[in-house]
């Protein structure tokens, strides 16, 4: 007997390929906005129908919207008729188009990132007239959690957090308390110079102690605390084989009462056939049009 789940996945994969081949490409455009009067930030935007929900998709740490997991979701939702916006956080770089290397000088912080997210959420809300559904991947999910938490008036409708991780100490994270203590100490000393830390998957991460701390502070507890505020409906999607997120973190999420969807066999990036499972899961979460 064949596994009915696997058969369904294959069927979905075939349908997606066929639809990708026969459906006309959705009209998309690059949107540029001036951020903070210092730099230009960009996003890919696909205009959906008038009644279509507006979705913002946010990439992971140091990545761009071109990251394959993000781009596949963007394409799928665009083709489904949603109004979809995929920004690339500038990370301090004007019109950033490429992922930023760990070894580069990092001038960005959680605050600057959230400010850019807010810029795009409000632009999308304004553009579509609809509250925005937040959809993040990995650190992008963390930043969206933080955004909802930090920007209470944000016009958001729903949160879908894929491979939701955390900053700060934890299995699969490079951060460590020692670095944080060093950063705190530096901050106390008023040091604003560059220091080398470990961050996320970067073993060498050059930034100011303030910037480092801004990310590090969004650890497990702070995220759970933010999630538990239940301001908007939230869904969390995990791959059962995600090696970047420790199991205990997943259990804590599940234990918090959030709607958690686990896709069997998928990893952190939902590669290969699991992207269809992910898409199915998202489709099931999103409101119909």
């Amino acid at each position: 007997m064949s596994n009915p789940n696997i058969s369904r996945r294959y069927l979905a994969s075939i349908c997606l390929i066929i639809s990708a081949l026969i459906v006309a490409p959705v009209a998309a455009k690059t949107v540029e906005l001036s951020f903070d009067n210092k730099r230009v930030v960009t996003a890919e935007f696909s205009q959906g129908g008038a009644e279509a929900p507006a979705i913002i998709i946010l990439h992971g740490f140091l990545q761009t919207r071109e990251f394959h997991t993000v781009m596949r979701i963007y394409n799928a939702l665009s083709e489904s008729g949603y109004s979809v916006l995929a920004p690339t956080l500038s990370l301090g770089l004007n019109r950033r188009q490429k992922s930023l290397a760990c070894e580069a000088i990092h001038f960005h912080s959680m605050e600057t990132d959230l400010a850019e997210i807010d810029l795009w959420v409000r632009w999308l809300n304004k553009e579509t007239g609809k509250k925005v559904i937040l959809l993040g991947h990995s650190a992008g999910s963390v930043q969206l959690v933080a955004y909802v938490d930090q920007f209470e008036d944000a016009p958001v409708a729903q949160g879908i957090y894929i491979s939701l991780g955390h900053f700060g100490r934890g299995i699969g994270s490079a951060e460590n308390p020692v670095d944080y203590q060093r950063a705190v100490a530096s901050i106390k000393k008023g040091n604003t110079g560059l220091e080398k830390y470990a961050m996320s998957y970067c073993k060498e991460y050059l930034t100011t102690p303030q910037n480092y701390a801004s990310y590090y502070e969004w650890g497990k507890e702070k995220i759970l605390s933010a999630l538990n505020k239940n301001r908007i409906p939230l869904h969390v999607i995990y791959g059962s084989k995600d090696q970047r997120i420790d199991k205990s973190w997943m259990k804590k999420i599940e234990a918090s009462g959030l709607k958690v969807i686990s896709i069997e066999g998928a990893n952190h990036f939902f590669v290969s056939e699991y992207e269809f499972d992910l898409q199915d899961a998202i489709d099931n979460i999103l409101p119909g049009m």
């Binding site: 210092k38 730099r39 301090g92 770089l93 004007n94 019109r95 950033r96 188009q97 490429k98 930023l100 290397a101 580069a104 000088i105 001038f107 560059l194 050059l206």
Partner: peptide, 17 residues
């Protein structure tokens, strides 16, 4: 390269970069 632009925008750490 975006880091070059980054240095133009913020040349404070140019020597390090």
């Amino acid at each position: 390269w975006e880091e070059v632009t980054q240095q133009i925008d913020n040349p404070y750490y140019y020597a390090y970069w």
